Computed example of a mutant assay.
Amino acid sequence: AMGLVVINGLIIVLLAVTGLRRMIFEAVPLALKTAITVGIGLFIAFIGFVDSGLVTATGLSSPPVGLGVQGSIATIPTALFVLTLLITAVLMVRKVKAALLIGLLSGTVIAVIVEAIARLGARSAENPGGWGLSVPTVPAQWVG
């Protein structure tokens, strides 16, 4: 794997030195560059929607995903996701520096507090209202 990283780095340096990288970059139309950027952003957003419980797999071939956990978006993790999204949006609209970082950190702190109080646990078939990706807890070690 490390050898492939070195080879990749050498290829990129070679493309940059010869000017081929600029020609390739300029050959791609602006609309395609925008579409690629939007597609990557939507993919990352979709992962966040799934992890928050806003969107879940239905287990059917059509539609493959549905809104909420068992058709309901009334779960604490989903509400916390929407709250974090609103905090971040308000900070960004107000042009606060580090708005994304502040929004993520505030959502994380709120999630840890909510988990300490409500003890939701991980999402499973028996516990559909739990946390999707990982259960937010205070780490046992801050530095490892």
Rank of each mutant, 00 (worst) to 15 (best):
S72A: 10
G71Q: 12
I36Y: 04
F25R: 14
I110P: 03
G66K: 10
R123S: 05
L85M: 14
G66E: 15
A140G: 13
T84C: 07
V38C: 08
A74S: 11
I44V: 15
G130D: 02
R21H: 15
A111I: 12
E115Y: 02
S72P: 05
T88Y: 03
L30W: 04
M2E: 15
K97N: 10
F49G: 00
E26Q: 14
S134I: 09
F81S: 08
K33A: 07
V112E: 01
V96M: 05
A98N: 11
V50H: 07
I7Y: 07
A98P: 05
A16Q: 11
M2P: 09
R119E: 09
P64D: 08
L42N: 13
P63W: 09
I12D: 07
A45C: 14
M2D: 15
G59H: 09
S134K: 09
A99I: 09
I117E: 10
A140I: 13
M92D: 11
L86M: 13
G41E: 11
R22Y: 04
V112H: 01
V135D: 01
V90C: 08
N127P: 05
A111D: 08
V13H: 08
V13C: 06
A79I: 12
V17M: 11
A45H: 07
L30R: 14
R94P: 00
